[in-house]
Write a protein that binds this DNA or RNA. Structure first.
Length: 222
DNA sequence: TCATTAAATTGTT
DNA sequence: AACAATTTAATGA
């Protein structure tokens, strides 16, 4: 998937044809290898970023090189609108968790869509609302939950059908990647996944997980 | 297409 | 963190 794909950008399908044309004209797609920095904290935010293929992570690192993962973004997720809207520098690092293809929409185009497309505004509003809810829920529980529950919540977030409509019920993610997102060791992620599988909330596959009970995962540990 | 081998991922200590 | 077992991907006949 080395070019822009509307399947990984649900908002694109909502646009009028003339708006779609401009997007296709302005958007670029680049490949990022495992662990590569897609956008770094502090630099000017002049693009809206979307995941065409792969999996990326938003994180904030401190001086020690320790990283606290904030959230993972799978195929179909778009991010960085906050920095564009407020004309700020990026507040977080964005890194590829594995080989990924990333689309960039210039901020001028982004703002042009804001001014001219009602469907685009509608989409952004829904998305921001959903994201606020996600972060509030996280801030509330994050520190209190054990590793099992963190893995469960993490997966539930990745499968958010509104933010990432591209995902059906199966996500290609290794247990190591899962560990990076939930901030647990790979071994612990393995244990957690097996426990959740035992409770019939998901199914563990080779290099992937399938969700059986999304609500159950959301509620896990509550 | 099948068999062999290498690489990636998982399960366990 | 290390190691063995398992699954997938790649290669070549």
């Amino acid at each position: 998937m080395s070019s822009f794909s509307p399947e990984a950008a649900q908002w694109f399908n909502l646009l009028a044809h003339e708006h779609q044309r401009r997007v296709l004209q302005d958007v670029t797609v680049a490949h990022y290898g495992n662990g590569a920095l897609i956008a770094r904290k502090g630099e000017t935010a002049d693009h809206w970023i979307g995941v065409m293929d792969g999996l990326i992570r938003i994180s904030v690192g401190n001086a020690d090189g320790k990283v606290a993962s904030l959230t993972g973004i799978p195929v179909g997720g778009w991010l960085g609108e906050g920095s564009i809207l407020k004309k700020e520098c990026r507040k977080y690092d964005v890194v590829a968790l594995r080989d990924s293809y990333v689309a960039r929409l210039p901020s001028r185009t982004f703002e042009w869509l804001l001014d001219n497309s009602i469907p685009f505004n509608r989409y952004l509003l829904d998305m921001l609302n959903e994201r606020v809810g996600q972060f509030i829920g996280r801030a509330e529980h994050d520190r209190l939950l054990n590793a099992d529950a963190r893995v469960a919540r993490c997966l539930a977030e990745l499968f958010n059908p509104l933010l990432y409509p591209g995902l059906k019920q199966r996500l290609a993610i290794t247990q190591e990647e899962m560990g990076y997102l939930a901030r647990v060791s790979r071994q612990r992620a393995n244990q957690a996944l097996k426990k959740l599988e035992g409770e019939k909330l998901l199914r563990v596959e080779y290099g992937a997980v399938s969700i059986l009970d999304l609500d159950g995962l959301r509620r896990y540990g509550a």
